[in-house]
Design a protein around this nucleic acid. Structure first.
Lengths: 201, 201, 201, 201
DNA sequence: AATGAATGAGACTTCATTCAT
DNA sequence: AATGAATGAAGTCTCATTCAT
């Protein structure tokens, strides 16, 4: 019972780090101190194990965002909350963002319809916020999707490149300033986007 | 001599689509109508083949950006040109952005120091633009890095998700509007960022 | 558990006959009626499989000689026993001598430090016998090492050339007498060496 | 013309060190600074190249021994000359002895009939010496073949183990004395054998 | 005489998966 | 729930050899 969770956790870590094809069942078994056959006992197949992990992650982020959404119906604040929530959740489960990046890079080979739909809902939350803002006249009219690419793209890119930047800044100390962490990413991001969207009147 | 280029092109396509571990030498050989041993004759190993591809791509984008940079020294225009150039080049060589995403997701396992340094230079070009803008008082003071995450993150995410979005919009027609392509990404992106950065008065 | 031993035995036979590079894992698998992957399951690599075999063989001959050594502390008899024991053991495990010859021919590429040390012990047993004999005045003073080269060289050469001589004697019947087996090799050897070493008083 | 000899020399060195299967045509090409196809141009095939080398070596030792044989018809001296000649020639062309050891270990897979016959002649020279000695009453009656195994076995073993012993004596300095070179191998060998064979009277 | 490119066969090794217990 | 042994397919890489020039 406990073992199953350990397997899930370790598998997730490995899938995030090395990708689906770069992760072996042997590695998962060894990192979770489990017999390889036990993984099959619990999860049927590698594909299924991966699928479980993907589903859990998408559900977690969806549930979190849905919860936070209800904290405000003011578009300005809602946008801020959305960005922060996405960031917080993505940081808490850093593996997810890496898995997502790989899925996008491979056109979602491993994503089931169910998972895709759930992910669409995540986007829709942001879309609604922008639309409401435009309707209420607080945002300039602009394709809401571009905001979505900015938010998810920037956060994904920032979070998943943390280790790489750390490594680079050691190797190239003269460019260290380029690679240092940003103080408060969600706030900076929010401020730029907000200023970029806000209609003055 | 021709064959070598064919192999490079096909390998790149496959690495972009399926990742390093998801691509087999057999597949590359078959897609480039080459004998498998010939790939080893020209490229020594899978790792080395991948490395060559990575290097070529990073060099191409670097050269293109360096060229474009010299077209203006006005930070506002330079920013616009940078965004557009990055977008154009990334779109022309769509495979690169996917390879890059995977590399970031795996903390750059396959990136040699040489390649990393070259990639750092790409970032530095943007950093200099922002810094000049802040110095000249046309941009509000803000951590230049966040802009970099927005530009590269959003463009990467947008471009590499094209096919996935197309697939999704067929499967979920009710949400099709969410997934449609944005009319003019670099322009929209530039306008939001510019508005978000510009200092008034 | 049984399979592992079968693999070891068959691998040993093949390595002896065809050398390390001349033996394929496919061949070993087929001769031991085992799946190739099973060999890797039990032995990790070809190199390691070979190493195990080498270690076992050296240990076997060492243990046998150590045991026999204690049967006498008279140098004359001890020398006789050593020669006979080495011969008997080498004949019982004929593969070993061939493997050893190849190892020597290639300067022990595959010999680990551990194995080398064990083999050194084998030499030391003979060395001690000769030295004791010289000290007690029953042997003329002579470099003990030369005796070692005679014993091991002659026995190795004799035993491993058995099949070749048989083949040759069929092909060249007029020289058959040159190639026939010697009646009692260890005894003949012992007598020559003893006579060659003995000091007369 | 020159290249052909370089190829032969380098191939021989490699075959001696790594065996037939352990040596690749690529390696030979690279060590002789020749194009791989050139080796095929000169030698048809790997097997043939090896065969040429084997033949040359056996012929060289045969010619040398035949020459030396005529220097004496006294069995005692002839034996001494034979041992010394075999040793000198084997030392001059150290690769040969290693190749021979491997051939014996693998029952002479690569030895053509022609080469085998020539090698038989080498043995016959020694056989004749011993027989003459027995006939003349200077040697005790003893199977001549055993002397042959002693001479060839001991010399082969001694010469081909030189590097290995050097390596070992560095790794195990406390046993260095066991591994040091013998001062005058052919003399020591001759003296033991002579004393072992001589009939007193 | 000499070479760069090309190839088919096969080598070592790994992997997801299953089975018997 | 848990495990050691076993397997077929496939993956990376090497090798002897040939071809066109």
């Amino acid at each position: 019972m406990e073992k199953k969770k350990v397997i899930l956790r370790q598998a997730k870590r490995l899938f995030a780090k090395n990708g689906y094809d770069g992760t072996t069942m042997d590695e998962i078994a060894s990192k979770s101190n489990a017999n390889k056959a036990l993984i099959y006992y619990h999860f049927k197949s590698k594909e299924n194990l991966y699928s479980c992990i993907l589903k859990d992650s998408v559900n977690a982020i969806y549930d979190y965002l849905i919860n936070k959404r209800d904290e405000s119906d003011n578009p300005l604040e809602a946008l801020k909350i959305y960005i922060e929530a996405f960031f917080v959740q993505a940081k808490k489960d850093e593996t997810f963002i890496r898995i997502l990046m790989r899925e996008i890079a491979s056109d979602g080979i491993h994503m089931s319809d169910e998972i895709m739909e759930r992910f669409l809902h995540v986007l829709k939350i942001l879309d609604n916020i922008i639309k409401q803002g435009v309707n209420e006249g607080v945002f300039v009219k602009r394709d809401a999707k571009i905001v979505h690419f900015i938010v998810i793209g920037a956060i994904s890119y920032y979070l998943s490149s943390c280790l790489l930047r750390k490594r680079l800044s050691k190797k190239f100390p003269q460019n260290e300033f380029l690679l240092r962490d940003v103080d408060n990413v969600p706030l900076e991001l929010y401020e730029i986007i907000l200023k970029g969207l806000k209609s003055y009147g």
